[in-house]
């Protein structure tokens, strides 16, 4: 679109530039305002919450200390971390195997299995929540880490993206290993897995994000407070402290902060993974 320069005069172009930048600025402000507002209130005192000043007069960490000590938020954060990390690691391992098998191995029923996996895109958690609850209960996994982790592992999207990735890998890389008489397992471990690093990194971020943010399943699978993930913890916290905005915003900041930190650190990789997921 750099050809626009030839269509417009210098002055018109400057005008377009200014309008563009104003729109961008307003949009950016509208996007960022709720987050900034959350942050400023979480540093305000109860008395100051409703005063029209935007920045806290005497910023203090009191709200955070209160939230972290009054409610076992550290425990919830720990649970969220354990569950999200476990699901991510197991899912990446299982799904890369499945993706490789679907891309490379020839066996009867392969297309049918692929289709079955693909069709689960349409089965959302709310649709199967009642029987899933019963299945997990009958396996004795309600109120356990296993109950939080195991049902969350399967992810059709992950298998699909890995399969696409393996289909695009040149076969020659494996053929040398096949000539050497390596088994499929051996090839998977020593050739395929090391080659998968970029896609695994992208998916790791997406899986972790999705599981850190999940709410419906942890809410359904755990009633024991010591197993609550932070999302469930904050939901119960909110019902007790509905009118204390400063505490609610401090708690929201605590849940949002780890994800925003991850975003700042891994920005490039996250954008790339979203893009690849969209283009395939």
């Amino acid at each position: 679109m750099n050809n626009a320069t030839t269509l417009l005069s210098r002055r018109q172009l400057d005008l377009v530039r200014i309008v563009w930048m104003l729109v961008t600025l307003v949009l950016a402000l509208m996007t960022i305002f709720p987050l900034l507002w959350m942050l400023t209130i979480s540093f305000k005192s109860q008395a100051e919450v409703f005063q029209p000043t935007f920045w806290p007069k005497a910023p203090s960490l009191k709200n955070f200390v209160y939230v972290l000590t009054e409610v076992p938020f550290l425990r919830y954060l720990f649970n969220s971390f354990v569950v999200s990390a476990a699901v991510t690691i197991i899912a990446l391992w299982f799904h890369s195997m499945a993706g490789y098998a679907l891309a490379r191995l020839r066996f009867p029923g392969r297309e049918a299995i692929f289709l079955a996996i693909f069709s689960t895109f349409l089965v959302s958690l709310p649709v199967i929540i009642v029987p899933l609850f019963i299945v997990v209960r009958s396996m004795g996994m309600l109120n356990s880490y296993a109950g939080l982790i195991v049902p969350a592992i399967f992810n059709a999207f992950g298998i699909f993206l890995l399969r696409q990735y393996y289909l695009a890998l040149p076969r020659e890389l494996e053929e040398a290993a096949i000539v050497d008489g390596a088994s499929y397992w051996r090839i998977y471990w020593s050739v395929i897995l090391p080659l998968s690093r970029p896609i695994i990194a992208s998916l790791a971020i997406l899986f972790f994000l999705a599981n850190w943010n999940s709410f419906l399943w942890p809410l359904t699978a755990t009633s024991d407070q010591s197993l609550w993930v932070v999302q469930v913890g904050i939901a119960s916290f909110r019902s007790q402290y509905a009118s204390s905005w400063n505490y609610i915003m401090a708690a929201s900041t605590i849940v949002a902060a780890p994800m925003l930190l991850v975003f700042i650190v891994f920005q490039k990789q996250i954008m790339e993974s979203i893009k690849t997921s969209g283009l395939k």
Binding site: L27, I32, W37, I234, V255, A256, L260
Partner: peptide, 20 residues
């Protein structure tokens, strides 16, 4: 900036907006 909101858990978004 636009994408950063996608990283914020829906729970936090819901709480902040309930006050906004």
């Amino acid at each position: 900036i636009l994408f950063s909101t996608y990283m914020v858990p829906m729970i936090a978004v819901a709480l902040v907006f309930s006050k906004l």
